[in-house]
Write a protein that binds this DNA or RNA. Structure first.
Lengths: 342, 342
DNA sequence: TGAGTCTTTGCAACCGGTTGCATTCGTCGG
DNA sequence: CCGACGAATGCAACCGGTTGCAAAGACTCA
């Protein structure tokens, strides 16, 4: 079926090595043979078999792209950027969907069978067991959107969720709200925990605040709507920091259904700044997460690991910023904008 | 680095063939050697190298998953279902992003280098050149969400876009609208053309209608909002069939910005029924596309092609249905529900 | 023209598996 | 106890490439 090295070699009247060498960067071939080989290859429509060559070179250019987040619209953008970025560097994403997988072993086994050169774990909710399992197996790994640590076990690229929590709390307080709420995602997600920590820290430093804390069952519209529905029934805070944009949109929907004016009766600030947050009929005030930089950097890291797998794990953080839209009332005139201490 | 067949064979005190055979279905191995081998393999943490074996077996279990649609939220669901479905059958999706690719050759070359067993083209906007190029190269291919044809050149799984156009037109007419509009996606997309054809067909059979036709620049929120903005400025129809849900939401946003009541002043019906269409603050009336069946079937087809690559190309269609929500006024009392003739 | 050097080329072994074939083993019937 | 037969095993070739090594070729310079 397929055209092989041998076929080309025969047609060109050279050895198989000569053919191989014309197709590998920086090998020594005379212009003359190169021409002969290229002509023969073109005539036969020859394509070198990347998998066969990986046997001897030990490189497949395959990168495992692992996620469990196939419901949050922002991840479509994540996949878009990852696949394009990898393609541009001649790497191929092997997609792994871990939606309902608790055990890293199965996916680890599979990715080793395909001898991927590296792995990108793109998820803020997968437990660190996963990236760690790859590291332990000697597979270069970077955890995108992972949890920051000053002693990272694997390469991490993401945002400082604690700082985001602080930023959100400051934003609510600066707008004069005295009764504020934290409406987090699942309590087990490290991102939720960190965001809460920052939020609580700022709140604790500010006396005289009334603070409510709840957690939605998932980072989803329905969960956000349900949880905000309960809050409204209980008697809601004036303004909320919601775990992410989808959750916020759910909360927004609940407020609208309850006849509450946003941001008049109820303020909301989300996190992510996904495309949809800017749609005029949603118009969500939110904290922007620099997805593009995170992904570009993740790819850079994984590429550099291909050459030096032993590089010490590093955590890279990118700053977030508040994007003012229509779900949080403006700063009172004369108020100083919230501090940005670091 | 990696543990190989040879290592296991030596530790188990058997030949390499014996090891190979214990790991291949239906090979003849005595229970005793099998046990020895399995023990040795477990001790060494051996994983057979899928790529090496593909050299002799000619099967990689790699499936190219190609799309150019990384902006429409429904495609997140599409990727979710495809990756899970393929994984469940022991196949691995190799993701290819064709967002700005006009020429099938590059991706064809790449997929052949990785000797994928088959290819799924998941897109309603990629020209038939793409699937055809794979077919011509002898790679099993199925075009999901592709254009129906009674003489299909490749396997196609999708919906009958012409019938969807008819369905939409009937829905608008049955609700008593006499001035209706078609707000399509890009005019070059076959899906747009087909939907228009069905729409126009029904409209032509119904005298006394006033009909407007426009096309948005893309299947996107912004394009839908912009185009509907222009329509409103020109003097809009009473109700529109929009190219898809994202476009509809853009149109909805434009209507709201212009102060038009939906569905009172302006009716909208979309197509796809993506998750977001059901969100209570969007609540879009739309035509449901059976994404799950399309994907399950696509996978079935590609799997069957693995065994019999020569199977005659077939087109499979799944019926769509109107989902009534809040952007189209209800049927007038006593009106008979729109016909469903076939 | 010839020695010395650098480039090009082919041979053959190897990457990690699979598989046809011949050999050996175990078992059963007579 | 022997022969026959099917099951289990190992050998060796092969899948489609890569690469170290030595030989051949091209070129420089005296």
């Amino acid at each position: 079926m397929g055209v092989t090295l041998k076929d080309v070699a025969e047609l060109a009247g050279v050895s198989r090595s000569a053919v191989s060498r014309t197709f590998t960067q920086g090998a020594s071939v005379s212009p003359k043979t190169r021409r002969k080989v290229e002509r023969a290859a073109a005539k036969l429509g020859y394509q070198p078999n990347a998998l066969a060559s990986s046997l001897t070179t030990g490189r497949t250019k395959l990168i495992g792209l692992i996620s469990n987040n196939f419901h949050n619209p922002i991840f479509l953008q994540v996949f878009d950027l990852f696949t394009r970025g990898l393609q541009e560097r001649g790497l191929r994403p092997l997609l792994v969907n871990l939606s309902e997988e608790r055990d890293p072993d199965a996916s680890l086994r599979m990715l080793r069978q395909y001898s991927v050169d590296g792995v990108i774990v793109a998820s803020s909710t997968l437990p660190p067991t996963f990236p760690r399992a790859f590291r332990d197996a000697g597979v270069p790994v970077v955890h995108s959107f992972g949890r920051f640590s000053s002693m990272p076990e694997v390469h991490v690229v993401g945002i400082d969720n604690v700082e985001c929590g602080r930023m959100a709390a400051r934003a609510l307080i600066a707008r004069g709200h005295r009764h504020i709420g934290f409406l987090g995602g699942p309590e087990t997600a490290t991102s939720t925990q960190d965001r809460y920590r920052g939020f609580a820290e700022v709140v604790a430093a500010q006396p005289g605040l009334q603070v409510g804390v709840t957690y939605a069952a998932a980072y989803s519209f329905e969960a956000g709507r349900a949880e905000m529905g309960r809050e409204i029934a209980r008697g809601p805070a004036e303004a909320y920091f919601c775990g992410d944009d989808v959750l916020s949109i759910g909360a927004l929907s609940a407020a609208q259904s309850a006849g509450l004016a946003v941001p008049g009766d109820l303020g909301l600030v989300g996190l992510n700044d996904m495309e949809m947050a800017g749609w005029q009929n949603i118009d969500l005030t939110t904290i922007h997460q620099p997805v593009r930089q995170i992904i570009d950097t993740s790819i850079d890291v994984v590429v550099s690991l291909l050459d030096d797998a032993e590089r010490l794990p590093e955590a890279r953080l990118f700053p977030c910023r508040l994007v003012e839209r229509g779900t949080l009332r403006p700063l009172p005139p004369g108020a100083e904008p919230e501090r940005r201490d670091r």
